[in-house]
Write a protein that binds this DNA or RNA. Sequence first.
DNA 1: TTGAAAGCGCTAACAG
DNA 2: CTGTTAGCGCTTTCAA
Lengths: 337, 337
Amino acid sequence: MSKITIKTLAKELKLSVSTVSKAMRDSHEISQETKLRVNELAKKLNYVINPYASSLGSKTSKTIGVVIPEVVDSFFALAINGIESVAQENGYHVLIYLTHESREKEQNILMDFESGRVDGVLMSVSRDTQDHLYIDELMQAGLPFVFFDRVFDDVETSQITTNDYESAYLATKHLLEHGCKEIMFLAYSKSLSIASKRLQGYTAALAEQGLVVAQQNVITFDHDFNASYLQLKGRLQEANRSDGVLASVEKLAIPIYQACEELHLSIPGDLQVISFSNLDTAAYLNPPLSTITQPAFEIGKVAATALMTFLKRKDSVQVKEEIVIPSTLVVRKSTKA
Amino acid sequence: MSKITIKTLAKELKLSVSTVSKAMRDSHEISQETKLRVNELAKKLNYVINPYASSLGSKTSKTIGVVIPEVVDSFFALAINGIESVAQENGYHVLIYLTHESREKEQNILMDFESGRVDGVLMSVSRDTQDHLYIDELMQAGLPFVFFDRVFDDVETSQITTNDYESAYLATKHLLEHGCKEIMFLAYSKSLSIASKRLQGYTAALAEQGLVVAQQNVITFDHDFNASYLQLKGRLQEANRSDGVLASVEKLAIPIYQACEELHLSIPGDLQVISFSNLDTAAYLNPPLSTITQPAFEIGKVAATALMTFLKRKDSVQVKEEIVIPSTLVVRKSTKA
DNA sequence: TTGAAAGCGCTAACAG
DNA sequence: CTGTTAGCGCTTTCAA
């Protein structure tokens, strides 16, 4: 594109390219005066540094990779907002990749990162991913990772999550306190960190009342969505049918409403509902949905900040750091008063 | 990261680097046999090409820039899905930038593109943007642009939109046919392409009934959201209050519900509502929201495809090409039967 | 079909 | 504080 290079500036100013290069990067070893002259001419000539040449030389790209399952989801969309804002602030560029919950896609994306395309990665694991061999290799090779929301407990790096266990516990307890006897838990995966922690919270709340988790009350929506949906409906028609439900991810809230509509069940009369969700339409659903609202924007922001600070002190090795930002239970009308 | 370079392969195979380079890119001037040998060793050694060195040499980055106002919005989220899918298919990387409706941010982002960081850009204009001087310059300099949804009518390039005029016309007509006399139009900007086309459709439908657009029925939510919201509520309390409303973007649907709730107005009894929206909770709102559903994913996909095909034939100059993908009016309960 | 050489535009020691 | 000298790792002519 632009034909003027650092060489043009150097010639024009009777300086060496290296001086100009350093001046452009505001190096401390360049006099204030030269910096000014360089910047002035650069501006005048509309000079922009070639990022690829720069990356090649410096072995750093000023770009981060964001690898997430989905973007049509309030949580992830908000998280991206947070990430993008701190990236922009720090002069970083963000490359986005969607896995659509496929482990294979995720792996292909990560494999590309061996090329050094990104300086670091922000990631929320796909539903199908169980292990993290690829990731370990990349980390070993020196690529920094920060996980958010869906993390790996056994990876030595920063992980930003919400208080999954407590939130699920509180939500379940709320249902219990409002008369639910047969509470369902809708999961989205069996392996995901958030799935198990939320399930544990649910389990703990039941246990507190001397209840145990019934097989038929835990429905996992993974590969065959429709089959799971039918299972949900089935459970809602049994004699001893469920009277409360906790949806562990936003995507599962609407199916509950749909099932109730189809079965002419009333919420919260027949079934009380709470869902992890960042939907901003929650308050206007019929009935308004009680939610566990996650600090999605904040999580994205904190994750990106953690990565940025790590990238800044180039030395050092990554250490495990678990940051938990609490969610809030917002009670609306899908649960009884 | 990976220490093995094209040179390693060359040495190992007793070939020249240029041969290896060409083989890796599947050049026609390399024998099938050599290609095989090269690929084999590359795989074995886990060789990955250095994208930055490659970009520096070839003057092309295999990455596109996506510049949009927002991502916490069903339309844009779905569009990104479409874009990402075709990018991934074609081996392109996508750099994402959010303007948050600020012309200034948009400009800063675009200025960076002078550096050659991206091979092309996919863009939906920010609300505050009126002119396109910067964009013209970039296009002149050879950077391809494809606009989607929020476009510039007077720019010589591909533009992918939905049938804004007709959709708004149809929606308004629907309201009219169901008894509305005082229909409001909620805009999000005065200058945006979608704003004016949708307003025109609304205007045309009114005109057909011998009605003219009343000043107080068009409310533009731009800078001071709250002021506009108050204006909306005010209009809903006048003696001759509005009895129907068309929201020209998704973001404005919920405020209508909110206002009605606060004023104890019933939808659709007191006010019938239709909104441009891709909310998948639309059917479960109270009452279910009648929407003009845009082919968001498709728009993203088509826009990205247009850019890809353009990038493939490196020759040629960009030409104006307007692709319109129709929306559908989905009637639910926020309008009378 | 393959190779040699000359960069792409910048950064990075190391001198001066 | 400034300049020199080598590259970074790949892509390109252009010869062979």
